Simulated scan of single mutants.
Amino acid sequence: MGALGWLLSIVAVLAIASRWARSSWSPLIGLAAAWPLTCVLMILALLLFLLVRQWWGVMTAVVVIALQVLAIAPLYLPDSHLQGTTITVLQINLRFGAGDAGAVVATIREHDAGVVTVNELTPEARAKLVAAGIDSVLPYSYTIAEPKAAGTGIWSRYPLTPVHQDDQSYAFRQIWAEAEVPGVGPVMLVAVHTRPPEKDMSSPGWLTELDTIGRQLGALRPDVKVIVGGDFNATYDHFAFRQILTGGFADAVDQAGTGWVPTWREGRWYTRLIGIDHVLTRGATAKEVRTEAIYGTDHRALIATVVVPSSSS
């Protein structure tokens, strides 16, 4: 039992290190994604050390657990909330367009979503969403529907002006549009879908696309309010993802103090282990984040309640 405890401790220490590794090595990417699970494993290691009275192991486990708590605790501490206009943002990946269009529109209605970002939007899926009534709820849209996983779109309650951004370096479409929100003014909306890590041992494209979207977001004028929704194929525990959270950008989960919010892979509770769908803000604050199952897709919808200060604030 003591040997198993030490093995779990080694895995946990490597996972801590992986959170600060800027790497395209797929096993390290996977280890960082599994960070929340290693926190649970470390508690098991502590119990094993106590059971066999290995006191050095107990002390090691306590130190590692303390490091884990220091890393994860900020995600459970909500930011102070701004006053302003509340916008509910819904982010959903449709899994090659297979997500149930009626369920998506019902979720939009139920939560009174004002902005929806959609990944893996195929032409057929777009037609089904329109037939289900999405345009009657959110009359403004900017979409590029393409086969398989490449298509991306934005639907909005507010008038949209498409903004050109060069997305030729990406595997999938990235959509940018400026929304005119009453009482708030212009808000840049961005629908992101960066590529997943490769199945082999090296994923340079994964790292490159995260870097590219980070640079593009960082290039926006500092006074521009921004809401980003998307499948980043990266968790908060990936250093490359956290590098995007500079210049005023923040993850809605962190702002709301929601903590660990897994969105993939939907199907069974024990396979929904990692949070790769995100809503990011700048010049706004998320006060609540939750998820909801959508039939037909392997992602849960991520729903963030965002407060955007008025234009006079």
Rank of each mutant, 00 (worst) to 15 (best):
I43L: 10
G84M: 00
Q83V: 07
H299C: 11
A113N: 09
T143N: 14
E146Q: 15
D277C: 04
I29V: 13
A127K: 14
W206K: 13
G257E: 01
H111F: 11
L8A: 09
A240M: 00
L220K: 14
P74M: 07
V11Y: 01
D231Q: 12
F232L: 12
Y170D: 05
Q165T: 15
G218W: 08
I92Q: 09
D167R: 05
T152W: 05
E292V: 10
Q165Y: 07
I175R: 11
G183M: 09
M1R: 03
T297A: 02
R53W: 10
Q216L: 12
L280T: 03
G205S: 11
I294S: 01
G84T: 01
A191C: 11
A103W: 00
L160E: 05
Y76P: 02
V118Y: 08
S18I: 02
L245D: 03
D112E: 13
P196K: 05
R242I: 05
T117Y: 00
F96E: 11
W269R: 11
V224C: 05
S136T: 14
W35G: 00
T285V: 15
F172Y: 15
R173Y: 11
Y270M: 06
A15Q: 06
G57D: 10
D277F: 03
D79C: 02
G218A: 10
D167I: 05
T297R: 04
R290S: 13
G257Y: 01
A304H: 07
W176N: 00
G153A: 10
I154W: 03
Q243R: 14
T291S: 02
E180L: 11
E292S: 09
W6C: 05
M201P: 02
V306E: 01
A252H: 02
D251G: 04
G30C: 10
L31K: 06
V190A: 13
R282A: 02
Q174W: 02
P159F: 11
E120P: 07
D200W: 15
A125G: 12
S203V: 08
I134M: 08
V306D: 03
A103P: 01
L217D: 11
P309C: 10
A250M: 05
L160F: 05
L77A: 13
V69M: 10
T246Y: 03
D100E: 03
E120M: 12
W35E: 12
V190L: 04
S9C: 12
I10A: 15
I274L: 06
W35F: 14
R268A: 05
R195A: 09
S80K: 13
P147Y: 01
L70M: 12
A15G: 13
R268V: 01
P309R: 07
D135H: 04
T246Q: 14
I16G: 07
Q68S: 04
Q216G: 06
V181M: 08
K128P: 01
L90M: 15
D298V: 05
T285W: 00
G229P: 06
T258Q: 13
V115G: 10
I16T: 02
V116M: 09
D135T: 15
